[in-house]
Amino acid sequence: MSAQHIYDSAPLGSLITFSNGEPRPPQRFTRKLRAWNDENGMGRLVERSAGHSGRFASPATFALHLGNYGSQGIITMVVRRIYTVTSQLRFEIADQPKAGMVRILSRRDGREELHHLAPDFAAAEAWAAEHRYHGAVMEEVMTPDSVVPPVRLGRAA
C-alpha cells in the first residue's frame, strides 16, 4: 500500500508495517543493518495532519509511534516517525483496533492525534481521569472502519 492509502483509510490505533522492499542484511553488517532497520519496521498510527497550501505548501502527514524508552516505569523518550503521503516506502495494515475498544484523541487545525487506545470504556475513563488533555474526545470503535460520535471530556461550563 502507498502512504496516501494509509493516510486515507487506516483508522487511528492501527498497527502499520513499513518497508523499503530490500532484503534484511546479515547480522554481521551492523551499519547496513542499522540503516535497514530505519526503513523497515512496525508502529502504531497515532496522528494525522492535513497538508498546507499557500506560500509554503506541504503534503499531508501521518505519525507512527515506534516505542517508549525509559526505566523503572518512567518514560524518558517517546519515538515517533512522521511520514508524508508522498513517501516511497511500502506500508501495510498489520492490525486494526477491535470493536469495543475506545480511542482517546484530540483534533485541532486539521490534525488528529491518538493519546491512548483503551480496551473498553471504563478503562478509557480511568485513563482520562489520570491523564488530562484539553479538548480530548473518546470514540468507541464499532467496526474497524466506523466510530460513534465522540464524547467530549472535561467539565461543563
Score class of each variant (00 low, 15 high):
M1W: 02
A3N: 08
A3I: 07
H5G: 06
D8Y: 08
P11K: 07
L12E: 03
I16R: 05
I16F: 06
I16P: 06
N20G: 15
N20C: 13
G21A: 10
E22K: 15
P23I: 12
Q27N: 13
Q27D: 15
F29A: 13
F29L: 14
K32I: 03
A35L: 14
A35C: 05
G41Y: 03
L45A: 03
V46P: 02
V46M: 05
V46L: 07
E47V: 00
R48Y: 14
G51W: 05
S53Q: 12
S53C: 07
G54W: 03
A57R: 15
T61G: 04
F62P: 00
F62V: 04
F62Q: 02
A63D: 15
A63E: 10
H65Y: 08
L66Y: 05
G67C: 08
N68K: 11
S71F: 02
S71C: 02
G73K: 06
T76C: 00
T76A: 08
T76R: 15
V78G: 06
V79R: 15
V79C: 04
R80M: 10
Y83L: 11
T84Y: 03
V85A: 02
Q88I: 00
L89G: 02
F91E: 04
E92P: 00
D95K: 12
P97H: 13
A99D: 12
M101C: 14
V102F: 06
I104Q: 07
L105P: 00
L105I: 02
S106G: 14
R107P: 01
R107K: 13
D109P: 00
E112V: 03
E112F: 00
E112G: 01
E113F: 02
L114P: 01
H115N: 08
P119V: 14
D120R: 11
A122T: 14
A126C: 04
Y133F: 07
H134D: 12
H134Y: 00
H134N: 08
A136D: 07
M142C: 06
D145S: 11
V147G: 04
L153P: 02
G154D: 03
R155I: 04
A157S: 12
